[in-house]
Amino acid sequence: MPDESAIATHDHASLIVAVAKNRDRIAFAELFNHFAPRIKAFLLRGGTPAELAEELAQEAMLIVWRKAYLFDPAGASASGWVFRIAQNLRIDAARRAQRADRIATEFAVEPAEVDAPEAVVDAVQLEEKVRSAMAQLSPEQLKVITLSFFESRPHAEIAAILKLPLGTVKSRIRLAFLRLRALLDEVA
């Protein structure tokens, strides 16, 4: 099971590299078939209307095509990189919706900013560590991280979902991230 996912992860990374280096459309189509429907699912889950989710999923894949040269297979995971693109796009779209008159800005996906000058640890190693750190979080902590980070839900909405006071939600999120940080620091 871990083997299978490791292969898949590796595959997606080399497909992105093929897109960057050779403008490889077949590689791109393969990435599209895997990621586009998941990006759409991700957006739908966050409450994006279906039509817009479809449009944004396509947009996200165009960004993958354009920004593939920024992907560093040694420093980042393929799906993590795509996740970041999708999340940026969702937030950008939400912002544009608020200011409908504003022209869409070219948003920056700048993995270089996050991925250190001297890489923290290499991507494969870190991936292993992240998996074990996530497994060590309590279900409660995992839940708030999912809602606040993966699904970018506002604190008030998380409070409503979990039926908890806002203050409790905030401190729970804080503690969950502290714990995750501690777990990742431990293995450094």
Binding site: A8, F42, V82, V114, D115, L126, V130, L180, R181
Partner: peptide, 19 residues
């Protein structure tokens, strides 16, 4: 390094979630 690790870790976790 700790914040870099946290963000890099969250990115990986986000990818796993997306997958």
């Amino acid at each position: 390094p700790s914040c870099r690790r946290l963000l890099a870790g969250l990115e990986i976790a986000g990818g796993t979630y997306l997958d």
